[in-house]
Simulated assay, not measured.
Amino acid sequence: MSPATSVRALTVILAGLLAVDPVGLRPASADPIPADRAGLDSYIRDYLMSNPEVVRDALLKLEQDEQVANTKRVLLEHKDAIYAAGSPEIGNPDAKVTIVEFSDYNCPYCRATYPELKSFLKENPDTKMVLKNVASFGKDSEAVARIVIAASKQGNFEALHDALMTQKGQVTEERALDVAKGLGFDIDRIKANAAAAETAETLAATQKLADQLSVNVTPLYVIGHHGVAGAPDDLAAQLNAHAESVRKNGCEVC
């Protein structure tokens, strides 16, 4: 928060304190609260000087509220691109809760969190994941992303996603095609679709969206107006908390 913003915030806080009955600010043994404006101003000033944590906590709360409001604004602005039909999905197609994951099949943290996400979807049958492959790990990742986009048009996508996320070592175009072939996908059709301009545009749009949302780490999960970055130890707990919030309060930005 900038100094100017802090000053404005402090003004708001003080104005709010003066506009309401400040009984809650009075210690049990304090003198009666002055009734006149000058006395009340002095009372509040003395209280804040003696209890500076009140201002600190209020400023922190205001900053958090501003961050949430800004996040909602950005997500609403890009709502269609985030939840656009056509992105590969796994989970319940009629889900109440949607989690958007920005990832890369060669991202070690994406692979590390995948078993936890798979369990989360199984334990929460009212959820689904929209997968945004940003292909940030080089040419191999870009080639795999094209194959995945193309393969998603053939159905049975969840099996392919599972197989690619559980691979060991670098996933290349050749390996991705071998995996798809083993799962019964039409490889000639995948190759044709992967090379199509439409697939390139889809991938470019995803990468542009990631830039607009300042996605600088994978995986990144968006649930409602909340985001979870990387592979935190409490990933499942955070996902559960945010999913429950969406169930109870709806989603303003979905």
Rank of each mutant, 00 (worst) to 15 (best):
T5D: 15
S6H: 02
A9N: 10
L10W: 01
I13R: 03
A15S: 13
A15C: 09
A15H: 09
A15T: 12
G16V: 02
V20F: 06
D21M: 12
D21E: 15
V23H: 14
R26Q: 15
P27G: 15
A28G: 05
A30C: 05
D36P: 00
D36S: 09
A38T: 12
G39H: 10
G39V: 10
L40N: 05
D41N: 08
S42E: 11
I44V: 11
D46F: 02
L48Y: 06
L48K: 05
E53I: 07
V55W: 07
D57E: 13
L59G: 06
K61S: 12
L62Q: 06
E63L: 06
E63S: 13
E63A: 13
E66V: 09
E66I: 01
T71P: 00
R73E: 15
L75F: 07
L76S: 13
H78N: 12
H78W: 08
H78D: 12
K79W: 09
D80M: 04
A81Y: 06
I82V: 14
I82Q: 08
Y83D: 14
Y83F: 14
P88F: 02
I90F: 00
I90C: 00
G91I: 01
G91W: 00
D94G: 11
T98Y: 01
I99H: 05
F102G: 08
S103M: 10
D104F: 04
Y105K: 07
N106E: 12
C110Y: 01
R111N: 03
A112T: 06
T113C: 07
T113N: 10
Y114C: 00
L117C: 03
F120C: 08
P125A: 15
K128A: 05
K132A: 01
K132L: 00
V134A: 14
S136G: 01
F137E: 04
K139S: 12
K139M: 05
A143D: 15
I147H: 02
V148T: 09
V148C: 03
A150F: 05
A150P: 04
A150K: 03
A151C: 04
S152N: 15
Q154N: 04
G155I: 00
G155Q: 02
N156Q: 08
E158A: 04
H161A: 00
A163Q: 07
A163H: 03
L164A: 07
M165K: 06
Q167S: 08
Q170E: 14
Q170S: 11
Q170P: 00
E173S: 11
A176G: 04
D178A: 13
D178K: 02
D178C: 01
A180P: 00
F185W: 06
F185A: 01
F185Y: 14
D186P: 02
D186W: 04
D188L: 12
I190N: 08
K191V: 11
K191D: 09
N193V: 07
A195Y: 03
A197D: 15
L203P: 00
A204N: 12
A204I: 04
T206N: 12
L213A: 08
S214L: 05
N216R: 12
V217I: 06
P219S: 13
P219Y: 09
Y221I: 03
I223N: 03
V228R: 03
A229I: 01
G230N: 05
G230Q: 10
P232K: 15
P232Y: 14
D233R: 06
L235N: 10
A237R: 04
A237G: 02
L239P: 06
N240Q: 14
N240K: 09
H242P: 00
V246N: 12
V246F: 08
K248W: 08
C251Q: 09
C254P: 01
